[in-house]
């Protein structure tokens, strides 16, 4: 990959080193401007409540304290530990569903021959464009009639039916790149479609499964609209809903606590980013992702 990058044209500059330095300065400046707000939030979360506002745009608190974290954690009737646990359970179950269902379906589209495959594939791609608002209200009526409002089922169960076509598309692209000779040889040996899927395709597809899992986890973790609609009782809240209640209940007096909880809510995403950013970026570059 680096070789390809290094062959990029220099656009005929006569002072490559000088322009190189200028370019780094510009890029570092942009990075700084982009990251500054996040650092400001982090710094704000470490300040005492009295100090936070009054237009201090600096990053250095006069006094560092973690009281915003301990106060914020217990700032609502139910503490944030419960919200984090809820979010974690929902995100993990949703991720398992997405990866499992999407890989089964993608295997069918990429590898099996059956009547109507092209038709279903086109329909599946069509749902990529469909805004979820159009299914929102009937789905709500459906889940309500099942008595699932204020439970996590509406947030988890649809993923086991591969409703997010994006993941199917991502995996189809990858599965098509696996040499067909592998499954043809296995079929000669009498392997069933299931065994080929389980023993050949899945083990060779770890990168794309990981990419799908990571995006699925992050999107579920960050999802606000779904929990906002379906979850009403605080003990079932996700972290995002907890933050929202915190804004409503605290007003402007305890912004440092709100910042502290906001920072904590980003920590899981940030950790995933640190460890898996390569997979994330390749996932986007190869398929073109919405966000």
């Amino acid at each position: 990959m680096t070789d390809a990058v290094q062959q990029m044209p220099g656009h005929g500059s006569s002072h490559p080193r000088l322009t190189g330095t200028v370019r780094h300065v510009v890029l570092i400046a942009i990075c700084f401007v982009m990251i500054y707000p996040i650092l400001w939030m982090l710094s704000g979360s470490l300040r005492p409540a009295s100090e936070l506002f009054g237009g201090d745009a600096g990053l250095i608190p006069s006094q560092v304290t973690v009281e915003a974290y301990s106060n914020g954690w217990f700032g609502l009737q139910i503490n944030f530990g419960q919200f984090f646990l809820n979010s974690l359970i929902i995100a993990v179950l949703a991720t398992i569903g997405n990866v499992l269902a999407a890989s089964l379906v993608a295997y069918a589209f990429a590898r099996l021959e059956f009547w109507g495959r092209g038709f279903w594939f086109a329909l599946m791609l069509g749902t990529l464009m469909l805004p979820y608002h159009v299914t929102l209200i009937p789905q709500y009526v459906l889940f309500r009639s099942l008595d699932w409002v204020n439970t996590w089922w509406p947030l988890i169960l649809p993923k086991y039916f591969a409703v997010d076509a994006f993941f199917i598309f991502l995996m189809v692209q990858f599965f098509r790149g696996i040499p067909k000779e592998l499954d043809e040889a296995a079929r000669m040996d009498g392997c069933s479609a299931w065994r080929i899927y389980w023993k050949i395709i899945l083990p060779l597809s770890m990168p794309v499964l990981a990419t799908a899992a990571i995006f699925s986890f992050i999107w579920t973790w960050e999802d606000f609209f779904g929990p906002l609609i379906y979850i009403s009782e605080m003990r079932n809240y996700t972290v995002q809903l907890g933050l929202r209640s915190f804004i409503d209940s605290s007003g402007t007096s305890s912004w440092n606590e709100l910042f502290a909880m906001s920072v904590l809510s980003l920590v899981p995403i940030f950790l995933i980013f640190l460890f898996f950013q390569r997979l994330l970026i390749e996932g986007i570059a190869t398929t073109g992702m919405k966000r």
Partner: peptide
């Protein structure tokens, strides 16, 4: 882009 849609960033 990764953090952008979370409530925390809107709060920020």
């Amino acid at each position: 882009s990764l953090l952008g849609t979370s409530v925390a960033i809107a709060v920020l």
